[in-house]
Design a protein around this nucleic acid. Structure first.
Lengths: 243, 243
DNA sequence: CGAAGACTTGATGCCGATCAACAGGGGTGG
DNA sequence: CCACCCCTGTTGATCGGCATCAAGTCTTCG
């Protein structure tokens, strides 16, 4: 099977044969997870990282008062537990939202990669930046935007992300999240998420039926969510030559 | 003058002579900024990045309704505009909070670095992770914590950061932010920040006089702010050998 | 010395939280 | 196969934390 990581990075640049082979080698092992299974718990010791091969996952933290903040959703090709490259124990819990398969890899494999494939190391740095920007976008949304805007932003972002993995997805898609999960991602309660979804529906921006969403007015939804499409502005021309 | 970047990274690992020399070379040029000067504006084209050599800066975005979200504060040794490694135009505005000096460097210097010094590339990836975790900590705070907790968290975090740069700083320090800036960083209004500071004072956690803060009850303030000290859990043993 | 910015404090209002009740549905065990 | 139950979604009523508006003081700097 092809390397999911290679597939993901290959969307950004043309990988050389050597690079592709090096990435393939990282995903030899595989481990499956049932829906709801915890791959890594907050404060667990961690010594490896993972590539998500199938399914979707999320990472979150629990605050002292018991409330949950979902930090990010993870899709095929995403790296999980990159924090193990800096910290001894996990700053977040990682849980499967669907049946999943992950490929564990040692930190030392990343070290080898930086030596053998400097361009891939540089690319990892660049990918980190895209994820940092995604986080700051969410920070600004949660800090300053209204409830309706946050829910709209989540819908647009998730739709675009899902479409990157499956080009057949058009305006209709299955979100795969409960309203409580939407709330924990956006800093709202499930009850209020429900009302905001209804409002977006009444505004004619979306339609819903049984867990499936349809974007009726993409521009309007994007405007409501203060959405900025970052993918178009990518620029990786500075990367060194491939090996 | 010593390289600020080398100084910063040198706090994490022992740099080799070669590595130190490579880092020194990056900071040849220097550019100074007055208080309030904008180094980079949101959506500006960008082709270089910067090392902050003196002073403190902040980065922020402005939302469509005119409100501002401060994304991060920057200190000596921090890399600025790392997003230029992934994007064509800046996702955020970067402004000087005090008189500052920055060293501009080309993206291609980073490419060279990954080739010549794989360990430094790996270290950059690790540093990215620490900043990603700092962002997720703030995300959780803004999404789920009360106003008082957010202000307390900002005070603790800034105090610790300032102390890393200047070991003489004890429990008393100058924050160097207006209450409006505290509000824009925490997702609150200046008025409410004022009330929260008063409450923290009445709780006996801090004292204030003319822009200077004193931490009276460190454990209590940390608890109030749900603060997690990440620095203690660093683990960089996986890095490859130095060149 | 005047003006603009920062801080402070009170009064009021609203967005989203909380509490509560019920409907539908899918999985499980009897 | 059915009864039950837990999870999810839905809707209404009420509450509260933080925003907003307003007015005044203090500080700083030109």
């Amino acid at each position: 099977m092809a390397s999911c990581l290679a597939e993901r990075l290959g969307d950004l640049i043309d990988l050389s044969g050597n690079e592709r082979a090096a990435l393939d080698k990282l995903e030899q092992r595989e481990r499956t997870l049932r829906r709801g299974a915890v791959l890594l718990r907050e404060n667990d010791k961690m010594s490896e990282l993972f590539v998500l091969k199938r399914g979707t996952m999320m990472s979150y933290v629990i605050l002292p008062d018991g409330s949950r903040q979902i930090l990010r959703f993870l899709f095929r090709g995403d790296l999980i537990a990159m924090a193990s490259l800096a910290y001894r124990s996990s700053p977040e819990t990682v849980m499967a939202l669907t049946e999943c398969a992950v490929a564990p890899l040692e930190r030392v494999s990343v070290a080898d990669l930086t030596i053998e494939h400097p361009r891939l190391a540089a690319l990892l740095i660049a990918v980190d930046q895209t994820e940092r920007v995604a986080l700051t976008d969410r920070l600004a949304g949660i800090g300053r935007a209204t409830a309706k805007a946050r829910v709209a932003a989540l819908l647009i972002t998730m739709r675009n992300r899902l479409r990157m993995l499956d080009a057949t997805i058009g305006d209709t898609f299955t979100l795969g999240l409960t309203q409580e999960e939407i709330g924990d991602a956006t800093g709202l309660t499930a009850v209020h998420v429900n009302r905001m979804l209804r409002q977006l529906e009444e505004d004619g921006l979306i339609a819903r039926e049984g867990g499936r969403f349809t974007v009726l007015n993409e521009a309007g939804l994007a405007r409501t969510g203060h959405h900025v499409e970052r993918a178009a502005g990518l620029e990786l021309g500075w990367l060194p030559d491939a090996r």
